[in-house]
Amino acid sequence: MKTHLALTALPLALLLTACGEEPGSNQQFYGAQPDLPEPERGLLPSMTIAEPTPWGDQRPTVPEGFSVSAIATDLKIPRQTLVLPNGDILVAEGRGGNAAKLKPKDVIAGVIKARGNTSVESGNRLTLLRDADGDGTYELQTVFADDLNAPYGLALHEGSLYVANQDELVRFDYEEGQTKASGSPSKVADLPS
């Protein structure tokens, strides 16, 4: 990629000079008659990829009397939570990415876009957090179910826990107080992905 760019830097630079105009500062991008910038059709995208930064010591600002602290760490890309009737929290962990690579562009863009993302591997699991004594510290962190496919949506209905995998909807039997699924899930339906 870098050698390609280096070899062709000159002709590309010539081609790209045509599309780097700064939009005027007094442009109005909303309202009934928005003053939209002209569409750009350059050969190479001109955006930059944001660098992922860990939280570190930074915390969101909250009103007086509140505080923010992590109740669980070392999760593998948590995306969705479900609070169970007994106060346990289920966390769906996973990274999507079943999209077919239709063009060489998709392969290259995938590599570039991954630089703006976490390098943590997809967890493909559900983690259960429990705060048995109600002091705000979730002392139990355990894997509720494993071997899922980038789970996202979670719902509990009439003793069944429904999990939306990337490509299918599955169901676990759930009893209150469980810390681990009693077995592998059964499939409810395929999902388009």
Partner: peptide
């Protein structure tokens, strides 16, 4: 090769573009 590479970038555009 150079024109071929530009053609590859051109083909990286979406659909009828």
């Amino acid at each position: 090769w150079v024109l071929g590479f530009i053609n590859a970038l051109e083909h990286a555009k979406d659909a009828w573009a």
